[in-house]
Design a binder for these strands. Structure first.
Lengths: 221, 221, 221, 221
DNA sequence: AATGAATGAGCATTCATTCAT
DNA sequence: AATGAATGAATGCTCATTCAT
């Protein structure tokens, strides 16, 4: 750190109250421009290559302007995933209303998620690297994602679509399934760090496995 | 300094073979000290924070010594996972000889893997971040891991322990299961970036799910 | 740091135009301060000893500031001679207008050149080492110098002041004379790498030789 | 400097007296191998790129062995030119015995020098850069060269081949002519830092100019 | 004597952050 | 509020020199 004076806090406080509504709107717009630019830069160069200079250049604002909207690079990193991730969760949430049964739910959730990642190719990297560069945001995002997933599973359970698992067990399963899907994408769906969709047969295997597991005793009936 | 013409390589080119066995041993020892130090540093600060200065300082050698054993930082990054990962794979491979059945295999593999990560707490981060900082090594490691896993699954299939999946499907499932386990560890087994083991009930849920999947039709029989 | 992907250029790319004239002036001033400092450092330590740290320290700017004005050390090296050399050529060009005859021209050109080198004692080294450290700039400078010299010689030839040499021969002679003068300075005019002027009798010998050459057949008339 | 103990001198002394004649011969041979290797390296990379590693590698001795034969890199630099330059001077000296007249002398000296540089392509760079990297050796070499040249000129003068110049004037002229020739080579005879000979017409112009100078009064007779 | 491993000071370059305008 | 110039700590890498074997 360069200057040792404690004026940083003071400055941040100052800008909390824009004087007019127009100013507030402009503030919000620039902040979003910076966040979206950061998303793109992370998608291309990773968090490690997400320098302030690159972000401000892409967002078409001056280098110094950045610090009027974020207190530090870390502050930006901590803000990117919540902002960009919320819309992803929202879209997935919409897509899984009123499923026919559990497998219909699984398929729609997976496909929607996948499509979103294909259409927002930086998102996968923003998400996976966040574990490292914005751990708090990552955990929060995972919490939200798992919570939503768990809710869906509970609903399916109440409709008798799935076997008896306790609430806590369902949460555990949600984590596993998110991990399984992430690794499928990572292994079969990436091209140059960007998601390129996934071969249909991988999705079928996923669904088949999720439905029945590995063991074959049910074949014996 | 710049020098009028390229000055690189002169030293690397001529790296001579050590004359005595003692020297060769010492060479190897320092190389391993550097690799282990790098593992620890990555575990604590990530690849991005794995500066040569940190590694050499931890390994108790001079900064310049590093370049007698690695040609560059990337060379180190590319070497860490193969070196440290090979022993992990070896240990897991040993642990899964002659399983009673598929669930026995799964449990032993998972537990052994988990124990290894607990005992080498930096390994998890070395592995997950490698995707980004040492992609070739990561892919090779994943290939090896998935190949081994797939072999085990095939053996189980031939013993009638698991449902009929094609060879390629088994590979896909191996990827999924590794992902599922990784995310379980990430969510329930980490403390301050280091693996701290995993509650027993998580493992049970994992096994239960792997055995039967989600749907409950088999309960109806 | 290494970063997963190339991180260069981000800053250089976006170097914006200064907004006010005052800023532009300050920019230019610092650039010149750096160039002049570089000239002095090269004069004292040679290009090989012309580290960015030395230059910025002498120019009283921060180390990092250097890269706001030059893209690299080589960029600086390539800029020093053109900047400092242009003024030298300009001054010599001025000094040789309307000479009485060829020997008057020679004398004035030599003396002016010499005085410039005395007053800018680092210039000699900047020039001679450029052949090695900034070859393109050196060649361009030599081209300009030889071209100007050749022009003067042609003018003298058209005024019947000198013997019949072809255009190409005059260019060759220009090269020779620049070499002869450089070596005179190097041998009789240097003190601690800086030009300290030249004893008058050396200049007389130079002129006498240039006028008549070595052979004495003209004494026989 | 690293260690502050004053043992360097002691060590150097020690090796001054090899015990047997065979040892002395071997010492001398390795020293020459190092010097010749240094010449080649300088020819290719310049003094600045002449690292100890490169020299010892080319000379096929261990890195540390270097310091048994030279006290430092500077010591090597100071030794290269005297060693390699002496043979050049010797050969030129041989070539100019009993010239017909001054122009015959000039031509033979120039051609011999040129041929030597073509056949030992590293020599030119060793020589020109020495001014910078081994100033004492450079000055000594120039002294020797100029002295020899001056002696020749005096002999020509005594044979009435050249105009009346004083001894000191002849030395000055020797300097000039060496400079003129060097610049001719530099401009018209280099390819990739190595001397490739010189077009014949350049040599003719040189000789014509050396004979008569620039002015044309002798045409008027 | 000969070897080559070890040392650490030095270098060019990058970039988060601050600050004058 | 907005700008972009300025700062300086940190990084990867090189290499002359020393030293244990």
């Amino acid at each position: 750190m360069a200057g040792a004076n404690g004026t940083k806090q003071a400055r941040q406080e100052q800008r909390k109250r824009p004087v007019t509504a127009a100013q507030a709107r402009r503030n919000e717009e620039i902040r979003m421009r910076l966040l979206r630019a950061a998303g793109k830069v992370i998608g291309k160069y990773g968090y490690a290559g997400c320098s302030i200079a690159r972000v401000t250049s892409l967002a078409r604002v001056a280098h110094g302007t950045f610090y009027l909207h974020f207190s530090s690079q870390q502050d930006l990193f901590d803000s990117v995933l919540p902002t960009l991730g919320a819309s992803m969760l929202h879209i997935i949430g919409q897509a899984i209303h009123n499923p026919k049964d559990i497998m219909d739910l699984e398929q729609r959730a997976f496909m929607t998620n996948l499509n979103y990642l294909v259409e927002n190719p930086y998102m996968f990297r923003v998400l996976t690297e966040a574990e490292l560069y914005a751990p708090a945001a990552f955990e929060k995002h995972m919490d939200a994602m798992i919570a939503g997933y768990t809710r869906s599973l509970k609903r399916s359970r109440s409709l008798q679509h799935i076997a008896n698992f306790s609430d806590e067990e369902l949460e555990t399963i949600a984590s596993m399934l998110i991990g399984a899907r992430t690794y499928l994408v990572m292994r079969y769906g990436l091209e140059k760090q960007a998601v390129k969709s996934l071969p249909a047969e991988k999705i079928e295997v996923y669904l088949k496995f999720v439905a029945h597991g590995l063991t074959n005793h049910f074949f014996k009936t």
